[in-house]
């Protein structure tokens, strides 16, 4: 077993609905509500879910940008809450982040050079005399060539793809062991997405970085991830190896996500068991009782709204939190044969 870099145990991150001194409204947005995970050396772990399910908050917490309400985050066996300020600096370096919006992740008043040089000088990665060379090396590493041409550009002089390459270069500059990638390609054109994904894969193979890869795009996840975690309303509903989850989903929510995703083969597309989601994600302020998915689940039974489903384990660490995880395939088939329901 390879080394566990980041371990998260029963993490909860709540945000108050109202801030300040007012005590009238003590409701909380339960962005992350009891998630545990382990990210190993050189592994790509994907976190998948709809917008508002807490995946970004999870990523920010792992990167140290948000603080847990309860639960623990360990890095290389050390509890983040107990780190000394020196250790915290090391942690900051070790866990970097690539953001969703490459435009917003660049300071409008800084050039590409300043953006990459900042982490290098703050963390004293290279002596001042080598600064330009190191920046050029990092540019080259992410495919910004010739590097000299990019040094003095600011964000509006770069294309979306170039900006995200620069973002990746910035995160790589401090030699991290973990990169939290929060929807790194969803703001990019489809043609650029592939380039950025293959760059990320290349860097991961070269430097054996672990990615916590946050995405809602199943095709992207499938092409990159070793393991997948499906998140719904701040909780994990299913997790397992990418192959296991994609070929044999054990949760109706996963099946719905897969069904929403087009398959290029019409034969396969027609014959698969479709679960179509209706409605919106319920409010994370006041999540549904029992199984949180029961309000939208097409196979929900009375038990679903009363009891929280425990995890059921399958092969290779594949597990699912559904009362009917074992019978899911046949239930879905029945649902399909009974004909198209309301639409």
């Amino acid at each position: 077993m390879t080394e566990v870099l980041v371990e998260v145990e029963d993490l909860k991150v709540y945000f108050p609905v109202r801030d300040g001194w007012s005590t009238k409204d003590d409701r909380q947005v339960k962005a992350v509500d009891g998630i545990s995970l382990a990210l190993r050396h050189a592994e790509v772990l994907a976190v998948v879910g709809e917008s508002g399910c807490g995946k970004t908050t999870l990523g920010r917490t792992v990167a140290g940008l948000a603080s847990p309400t309860s639960g623990r985050v360990w890095f290389r066996g050390k509890d983040l809450a107990t780190l000394s300020s020196g250790e915290r600096k090391t942690y900051r370096r070790q866990v970097q982040m690539v953001f969703q919006d490459p435009y917003d992740s660049m300071n409008p008043r800084k050039t590409a050079f300043q953006m990459i040089a900042q982490p290098l000088t703050i963390n004293r990665i290279v002596p001042k005399t080598d600064l330009v060379n190191e920046v050029l090396r990092l540019f080259d590493n992410v495919g910004l060539a010739p590097g000299e041409a990019y040094l003095n550009r600011s964000r509006h002089q770069l294309s979306g793809g170039e900006r995200q390459r620069l973002s990746i270069a910035r995160s790589m500059s401090v030699n991290p062991s973990v990169i939290v990638a929060d929807e790194p390609v969803s703001a990019l054109d489809i043609s650029i997405q592939g380039q950025i994904l293959s760059l990320m894969r290349k860097l991961q193979e070269e430097s054996s970085i672990a990615y916590l890869f946050i995405s809602h795009d199943l095709a992207v996840v499938r092409s990159l991830a070793d393991r997948v975690m499906i998140v719904y309303l701040g909780q994990i509903v299913e997790e397992g190896t990418t192959d296991g989850v994609f070929s044999n989903p054990r949760h109706p929510y996963t099946m719905a996500l897969l069904a929403a995703h087009p398959i290029p083969d019409p034969e396969l597309s027609r014959n698969r068991h479709r679960i179509v989601l209706t409605g919106d994600v319920p409010s994370p302020i006041d999540p549904p009782t029992g199984c949180r998915f029961h309000t939208r689940c097409p196979i929900a039974r009375p038990v679903c709204s009363q009891q929280i489903p425990p995890f059921k384990d399958f092969r290779n660490g594949h597990r699912s939190a559904c009362h009917f995880a074992d019978q899911l395939q046949s239930m879905a088939r029945l649902l399909n044969e009974s004909g198209p329901a309301s639409h």
Binding site: R60, V95, M97, F99, R109, P119, I122
Partner: peptide
């Protein structure tokens, strides 16, 4: 709340640096 402010924090920037170099000029 801009991402470049988060990015600066991840770069190891102190509060003073974030205030004076990242936010105030903008």
């Amino acid at each position: 709340t801009r991402q470049y402010v988060d990015a600066a924090r991840l770069s190891g920037a102190s509060d003073a640096r974030v205030i004076f170099r990242e936010i105030l000029p903008n």
